[in-house]
Design a binder for these strands. Structure first.
Length: 260
DNA sequence: GCGACAG
DNA sequence: ATCTTGTCGC
């Protein structure tokens, strides 16, 4: 039975989701497992991936999921898989993976059968996610690929708050590469705020995904940044958006400037 | 005057 | 997520 893509999920579904998260969490590997992660320059790493899902304006069901693969360290797109999808689960903060991950897993599987060459051995997948057990962990465990969680905003959970103290820490970040830990109320480090390049006001929030330490995740993310948003995720975002524009152009109000 | 909370 | 223009600065 499919869930509705809008509204709140029933308590029953929510319970199932929590159990599934707990099940997957037991399979999570939060340390470095690949040889290239030990190298200061990540030599040996040849591909990095990015995923994103873009939406149609007044539609909470129709979207476009994109998976891109970039060469490393050049950061040029060498593969793209974009397609229109129909979401079945609603968005619930903390459970984003149940809405988006199934389609991302599909894309990874298509990559594996269509372009096995693209992931010689390792494709670390960069994407958005928070601290805890977000999309990066979820996707990582389900695909077995190393993943990194990258979020544009702080997920306010487990004591994390975008309060004046937090804002002050952001203000104190000097140069690209500077970081500060995201300390949860339990005293655990849930992630890192990273100033992704010299001239960005807002940091990016890095959290462990799968098969990679937080330290390596931050270092690699930093190396994937041409602008504030890591290039793999940025390309996935641009391309999924563009795909929607070209494919579903007849929806929504007329574009500004084209009224007459 | 609205509303704050990954996408 | 999405709706949105110009503008200031490197």
């Amino acid at each position: 039975m499919a869930q509705k893509a809008e509204g709140q999920p029933s308590e029953e579904i929510l319970l199932l989701w929590k159990r599934e998260q707990a099940r997957l969490k037991a399979l999570l590997v939060d340390r470095d497992t690949e040889a290239w992660q030990q190298d200061p320059d990540f030599s040996g790493l040849q591909r990095v991936g990015g995923v994103d899902v873009s939406f149609v304006k007044g539609d909470s069901v129709t979207a476009c999921a994109s998976l891109v693969v970039l060469s490393y360290p050049e950061l040029e797109v060498v593969y793209e898989d974009s397609r229109v999808i129909s979401l079945t689960a609603p968005y619930v903060s903390g459970f984003l993976a149940f809405r988006e991950a199934p389609f991302l897993v599909d894309a990874v599987h298509r990559l594996q059968e269509k372009e096995p060459i693209c992931l010689p051995s390792i494709v670390p997948l960069v994407l958005h996610s928070p601290a805890g057990f977000g999309v990066a962990c979820h996707l990582g465990v389900l695909t077995g690929l190393p993943c990194i969680g990258v979020a544009k905003k702080l997920l306010q959970v487990k004591g994390l708050e975008n309060n004046p103290v937090h804002k002050e820490k952001i203000r104190l970040l000097q140069a690209g590469g500077d970081t500060f830990p995201l300390m949860g109320s339990s005293g655990t480090v849930l992630g890192m705020a990273l100033k992704s390049h010299d001239h960005s006001t807002k940091p990016v929030y890095i959290s462990v995904g799968h098969k990679m330490s937080l330290e390596a995740a931050v270092r690699l993310t930093r190396r994937c940044c041409r602008f504030r948003i890591p290039e793999p995720v940025r390309q996935a975002d641009i391309r999924s958006r563009e795909y929607i524009r070209r494919t579903l152009c007849c929806s929504g109000p007329p574009a500004p400037g084209l009224e007459r």
